[in-house]
Amino acid sequence: MTAIWGPYHGPESSAVLRIAELAEAGGVGVETIRYYQRRGLLATPARGERGAIRRYGADDVHRLRFIRQAQGAGFTLSEIAELLALDAGHDRARARELARGRIAAIDAQIAALTSARDALSRLAAECAEGGAGPCPILAAFDDG
């Protein structure tokens, strides 16, 4: 089975991209690439002869895009590292467990945001009614 982020065996799979081009292809900055390398999420290619510029290939682009998409789904970088390792071992049960954990966290965030929206809606309605005293919205956020 092919890994999620590669390998890519087309004509573009040879290492032809500089770090800035990889960053652009992945929609991130160069420093993000370097950060992912320090975290072990992306490999740091060896320099060519006489310290030539490092080159990246399509596999690196695919892996970078996987990382960004997983972040978009709410996974932490630690969880993404585990997902990348799991893919190599095809551990579907653990990957499913991680996904279910993210779903539970997202559900909790939705519940908290729904509660906050409901409270703010009530305050806005009270504010619209007018009446004496301070604005209920301002009063709700005043510690004093």
Rank of each mutant, 00 (worst) to 15 (best):
L120S: 11
L86N: 00
L84W: 00
G48E: 08
E31H: 15
R94L: 14
E31R: 15
S115D: 12
A93D: 09
R38E: 11
S121L: 13
G144H: 02
A111L: 10
T2I: 05
L64I: 09
A58D: 00
I19L: 14
I4W: 00
Y35I: 13
R65V: 05
A73T: 09
Q69E: 06
A132V: 10
A3C: 08
A116C: 13
Y56W: 11
G72P: 07
A73W: 03
R100T: 13
E49T: 09
A93V: 15
P45G: 07
V28D: 08
L138G: 02
W5F: 01
A25E: 08
G57Q: 07
A73Q: 09
V61F: 01
I80N: 00
A104Y: 07
L41I: 12
E126K: 03
G57H: 04
P136S: 06
A140N: 02
E97T: 15
T2V: 06
A139G: 05
D107K: 10
L17G: 03
H90I: 09
R100W: 12
E126A: 04
A108M: 09
P7M: 08
D118L: 13
A132N: 05
L83H: 05
A132C: 06
R47W: 11
C127H: 02
R18W: 10
P11T: 09
G6V: 01
R96Q: 14
S115L: 14
A88E: 02
E49G: 05
G48M: 11
Y35S: 09
I106Y: 06
G10D: 06
E49S: 07
A116R: 14
A20W: 15
A112Y: 02
E97M: 14
A46V: 11
C135M: 03
A105N: 08
A15D: 05
A104G: 05
L138S: 04
L84G: 02
P134A: 15
G40C: 11
R39E: 14
